[in-house]
Every structure is written in structure tokens, then in C-alpha cells.
Computed example of a mutant assay.
Amino acid sequence: MKQEKYMTDMNIFARWGVDRPLFGFSHSLPVVRAVTLAGGIGVWGATRNTPDEIEAGLAVLAETCQGRPFGVDLVLPKNMPETEDRSLIEAQIPEGHIRFIEGLRAKYAVADDGQSGLRSRFLRSQEMGAKQLQAVIDSAVPIVAMGVGSPQEAVAQAKAARKTVISLVGSPKHARKAIAAGADILVAQGYDAGAHTGEIGTFSLVPQVVAEAGDVPVVVAGGVATSAHVAAALALGGVGVWVGTAWLFSEENDTDERVLAKLIAAGSDDTVRSRADSGKTLRQIKTAWTTEWSADGAPTPLPMPYQDILVGDFLGAAQRQGVEPLLKSEADQSVAYFDRRATVAEIMDGLLGDYRARRVAAQRLVPTTSAHSGRGHEGA
């Protein structure tokens, strides 16, 4: 009976003609295309792209993915400013935070080049979010993922356009809200994951989200790096996996060689969650940037989008000028499993490998009835 349900759930991939149960998230269009063409589903992280860029990027994917499915991911957080007015945000940034950034600028010799950065090239606002979503709605993309919340009106708008909606969740509470909003698929993203992540580890989170989800399929994210992880995700009740960090090591991604060296050298304990980039928790490799913000006397990061505007121009200049101590990358705890560049197809082969055989072996280990009543041997 359990095997029958497993096969039914896997049809979320089969209905798109996909034979590998993997969503590959990346900010790189070549990576997204390569994941899709290698038998998975590529998902483009486009939340830092303008509506025009989103329109153009999705058109490229529609043209080059050979009719295979792909997706796009937007972040649509609550309580953002209504309009696109950066000056209103700048006027509210505390003087102490401004002085802190100026101190870092002097310490690391980061020249003010008058340009914006990835986080400050536009203001995250309700106005911008609506325009980004409309660009997605007007495109041919079949799958829309939403991170950091799934506003009910946005979900309804996407579904009215016949898009499949995926909601990334980090707690059972978030799962309930996403289901109530109408999400078609949940991604249970554990503490191990890169980028914005919550407090609950993947192994603890996934079964709780599966229990909440009922007939809504659950995909597993956070720390996935091998076929053993994929098999474990399926054994926990997931129908597939969501992977992001692995593609930083791909030949198709334009990872800076100095950043790649840091990623290759990093173990799982060389990543840290920090609010320094956006005001929300963001797992990344440890660098001078995260160290400075965790030091005694450092200010508390501001809420989004104030932190975006505070640090965006500075981080952009540091990247453009190649200031090595500040060069960084988001990464999850699976970073320890990768030590070289490879093609997306090669990475996918390593990720999936013998997961089917491992899944069958895992099923044999699961008893059909509990051997103990009550709470068993907790604490033993």
C-alpha cells in the first residue's frame, strides 16, 4: 500500500514527462536549462531581476528547454513598502548603521563607484513584486515557486493562469498557511538549507510537513547532496528533492574562481545563517562579511528591505572590485560534499545515482507496525 501511494505521488514528475525527481534551483539560466534537459526540473531564482529581465529570461527558457518543464521562483514577503521609492527607505536608516558600513568601506578599501548592487538595484516593494508576478503570469512558464511566504492573492493569480504553484515552507505552521492559500506542492526546506531558512532541521521538518500536507505532495530541501540523501527524502515521505548549492560547482554556472575555492574548502560547519544581507536569515559560507556582523559592537541587521538598501551598494562594489575577504556565496550544509567543477549532468548523476535501490533497501528497514507503544526509548 505504501509503495502504491509512493508511485501515485511521483506522478507530479511523471505528468510533466520528467523521470528524475529533482527540482534544480539556480539564479543562472544556463544551469536551469541544463537541469531540465538532464531530466529534472530547473527553477530560475528571479526575485532579484526586473520584470523586463524576467520576461526575457523566461522567453529564453521556453525557447531552449525543448518543450520540457521549467519553473521560476519569486520571493514575495509581507510588509514591504507600497511603492518604489528608495529615498524614503534611506531616510529611515539609522546613522549608526551607516557609520558601520562606512567603517567597513575604509577597512577593506572598497571604493564607492556610484553603482548599485544586486540587493539595491531596485527596492523590494509591493509595487515591484506585483510587476514581477505579472511578468511571470504573462509568460509560458508552467511552474511558479514562492519563497518566504505564499500570499493568497498571488497564489490565486498564478493558478488562474494555469500555473502549478510551489510553496517553500520551513515549519508546520508555514505549511498550513501555504495549503490554505492553495499551493499545489510544498517544499519542506530544513535548517540545513542555503539562503532563507528557518529553525527546524530537515529530518525533523519533513515528516511534520508531510503529516500536515495530506494529499499535497512534499518535496525535500536542505542538505541534499547524494543519492543516499534522495532515498532518505523519499523514505521520509517526500516525493522528490529540491537542490541549489550543488550547481554552484557546475561548469554552466559563472561562479567566480575565488568564490569557488572558498566553496571547495568549506565543510558543513563553514556555513552560517546571517541576517547581514537582507535582514532575513540567509545561510552562506563564512567570510569577513559574516564575521564583521557577528562581532561585538556590530549593529543588529535591519529588517527587509532596509538592510538591502543599507548594504547593497557596498556589497556590489566589493564584488566588482574583487575584494577577496568579502567575496562570498550562499550555500547550504551540503557544500562539504562537493570539491570540483563538473557539468550539471554529471552532478545530477551523482545526486541521483542509485537512489531507487537505496529507496527499496530503506523500505525493507521500516517495520509495518511499531515494536513499542508510547514514546519508546526517548533519551536512551
Rank of each mutant, 00 (worst) to 15 (best):
A34K: 01
V60Y: 09
P30C: 11
I54M: 10
E53Y: 09
G39Q: 08
L29G: 05
G42P: 02
P51N: 12
D52M: 04
E55W: 04
R68W: 15
T64S: 14
G45S: 12
A34G: 03
P69G: 10
A62Y: 09
T50D: 05
T50N: 04
P30A: 11
G39Y: 07
E63H: 11
A38K: 00
A59L: 10
G57M: 10
F70Q: 06
R68F: 11
V35H: 02
A59I: 09
P51K: 12
A46M: 07
N49Q: 15
A46K: 02
A56L: 08
A59P: 04
E55Y: 05
W44N: 02
G40Y: 04
G39P: 02
G45W: 02
V35E: 00
A56I: 07
I41L: 10
G42R: 02
Q66C: 13
R68L: 11
V32N: 01
V32W: 00
G57V: 14
G40D: 05
V35L: 04
L61R: 05
D52R: 13
E55G: 05
L29S: 08
E55N: 09
F70L: 14
L29K: 08
G57F: 08
E53N: 13
V32D: 00
V43F: 06
L58H: 06
P51R: 11
A62I: 11
V31E: 01
E53H: 12
V32T: 12
